[in-house]
Every structure is written in C-alpha cells, then in structure tokens.
C-alpha cells in the first residue's frame, strides 16, 4: 500500500443482506481492526466515495437504488461485493424476490466470499480493490493525456 497517494473513502450499501456482513464491515472501522489508520473512511455521500462496498444480493426493489448510487460515484471507482449473497445470491438465491449477485447489475472488481465475511477478508478485499483503483486512475490519466494531444482514446470508453 506504499504506492497509495490518497486516502480512499468507502460507501457502504446494504442490498438485501441479513446484516451479518454489514456489521462486519462496520467492525473493520472500529478499534480492533481500525482501517482508518490507512486513511480509509466510511462516508455516507456517494459523491465523496471511491470504493463502493455492497453487501447482500440484488432484489427487485433495490435495483434502481444500487444503480443510482453507483452512477453518482465519480470515476475512477471500484466495486467490492462483500459476502456470498453479494457474490451469487448465496443461501437466498432461490427466493422469488432475489435476482442474484451484484454483478447482475453493475461491474464488480473484487469478490469477498464468506457468510458472514470476516473483517480480515473484507480488509484484504478492500486493499486488493485499491490496487485496481490505482490502475484505473493511471488509465484515466493516460486517456486524458491522449485527448489533450488531439488523439482519440483507443479501445473505446468503458
């Protein structure tokens, strides 16, 4: 993590989780695990966030909410799916109101399995996502440079 120049802020949204993963995400912020020492802060505002942490699977009701929050987060951004429900729907995958994992709806960069995911693995997942975030930032810079020089950005927009 020595390459990290800025402090990444995360936004946590509870899709249809049972709370088990939510409280473990919160536990990461509190004294025993304390991710704040790395500059990671849990924010309530999507406009301030870099990392979007989602727990629980998508159901029909929160589809729009997740998409809305995702679109409000400024680029570059990464999505971390915490818990088995966010990964695939988990134990609830057969319920009539569930559509499955978060990747049904938005692109996911890191999957953290577990029921409930342990704080250690959540921290691991977030640290992994920060590498991807840094890569995306470099790519964005590169694209901006190319546009400035009058060349069209190759490969098309994501």
């Amino acid at each position: 993590m020595t390459f990290l120049k800025k402090s990444p802020w995360l936004l946590h949204y509870d899709a249809s989780s049972c709370n088990g993963c939510d409280i473990e995400v919160l536990a990461c912020l509190t004294p025993l695990y304390d991710v704040e020492r790395f500059g990671i802060i849990n924010t309530g505002n999507p406009k301030h966030a870099d990392v979007f942490v989602v727990t629980g699977g998508v159901n029909e009701q929160n589809r729009e909410v997740i998409r809305n929050i995702y679109e409000q987060i400024p680029e570059p951004k990464v999505v971390v799916a915490v818990g088995i429900c966010a990964t695939s729907g988990g134990i609830f995958r057969e319920c009539y109101n569930m559509s499955g994992g978060i990747d049904q709806l938005i692109p996911v960069d890191v999957y953290v399995p577990g029921c409930a995911a342990r704080p250690e693995s959540i921290i691991d997942g977030i640290v992994k996502s920060l590498e991807i975030l840094e890569e995306k930032r470099i790519q964005m810079k590169e694209r901006a440079r190319q546009i400035k020089q009058g060349r069209s950005p190759g490969g098309g927009e994501r």
Binding site: D14, A15, S16, S17, C18, N19, G20, C21, D22, I23, G56, G57, N59, Q61, N62, V65, I91, F92, E94, C95, Y96, N97, M98, C115, A116
Partner: peptide, 29 residues
Amino acid sequence: GYVHRGLETLVEKRQFPEYVYIAERTCGI
C-alpha cells in the same frame, strides 16, 4: 421492501433440519 427476500417461502424447498440455517440468516445480529 428494500431488503425483502421472501425467505419464509424457502420452507417448502428445504427440509426442516436445514431450514435452521435460513432461520439463522433472517438477521445477522
């Protein structure tokens, strides 16, 4: 309804000893 999964219906899909796991995951707290 934002967290509604409809897990009570799973009772018809899982045998009664297995439904304990569903019951436990009603709430993680």
